[in-house]
Design a protein around this nucleic acid. Structure first.
Lengths: 177, 177
DNA sequence: CGGAATCCGCCACGATACTG
DNA sequence: CAGTATCGTGGCGGATTCCG
């Protein structure tokens, strides 16, 4: 089975059905986070998006996503199937044909994901701008640091040179004694 | 700088501003996916959720999240700051005090994230059920496989025993010759 | 064609120690 | 308190091979 969900020992239990939504912060390191990590996965997102439009077979998905390895596609599909988000249909024919499609549950997820993606698309430019601004700031700071270091270095060298000269003189003075 | 966004060579460029939203599937392996991977991150989600309620300082976040390493918290915060989602305010005092709070941009994200988390919470049980059903199916299949294998094994042993007996007889018959 | 299994590089993450 | 720097490691993900 390679690596499954690995029912972590940190399973916090669903004893509290009606927990305060305003406090999903601390205790949510149980199942919710895990599910989120799975569906927010890079490939899962793509697969769900593609399957919303129509059912597809393995190779079609592989071609469309282009960049995914067969291993990751198989893994992703099995995960989604396990979570009940996509359904797998095997047509007994030669060559074998397997179709994947979104379950009703998966379809509801799609809307939410779409919202997230839409947000990202809408604010893409703002984020890019913020990033460049941040990077510029950091670069400026680093440059300032380097200039300062260079200055310190220069001063240190000067002092050392003067000290060496003084030492030479001093030793010359003390030698006769 | 350790490891940053690592502007991947796969940067597809934002040349197409008005791309068909219905086809964000294939070409989205550019910036959108990267942004999504960042904000849909396990820790980022938590930090954003926590900061929506009020501004917090480093250690407060650390305590509340509980399970995050100082390294990941620092990384996450710097990422979010770079993306312009949270703002960092340093109060020059002893001991030093740093406050983090959501920017307006980050506040807009919070609603979307909340929607995603809400979806997860709402369908948590369905997913858990689907998983157990899937696991049960797989376990049953594997058990069937093993039973079949055991049967094959028994049959094979029987045949081998019979064959050995025949061989013994045959060799006994052929010895006198 | 649709996978499963194996090998392996690499880096993301965690734990620790040190700085200011 | 609020980080940065360093090291060790687990597992993610890619390439390859084989099976039904």
């Amino acid at each position: 089975m390679e690596d499954g969900t690995s029912k972590s020992p940190g399973y916090c239990g669903d004893t509290a059905d009606l927990y305060d939504v305003l406090q999903w912060d601390t205790r949510q390191d149980c199942e919710v986070r895990q599910i989120l990590d799975r569906i927010a996965d890079k490939w899962s997102l793509l697969v769900i998006a593609l399957l919303d439009q129509q059912s597809l077979r393995f190779t079609e998905l592989r071609r469309r996503i282009d960049g995914i390895s067969q291993r990751m596609l198989a893994r992703t599909l099995r995960h989604l199937e396990r979570d009940g988000l996509v359904s797998r249909t095997v047509h007994p024919s030669v060559p074998p044909r397997v179709d994947y499609e979104l379950t009703p549950l998966g379809a509801t997820l799609h809307h939410t994901i779409r919202a997230l993606v839409t947000w990202t698309e809408e604010h893409q430019r703002e984020i890019a701008y913020a990033r460049s601004a941040y990077d510029a700031r950091v670069a400026a700071e680093q440059e300032a640091m380097e200039r300062e270091a260079a200055q310190r270095d220069a001063i240190a060298r000067e002092v050392l040179a003067a000290g060496a000269a003084r030492v030479t003189r001093t030793s010359a003075d003390s030698r006769p004694r």
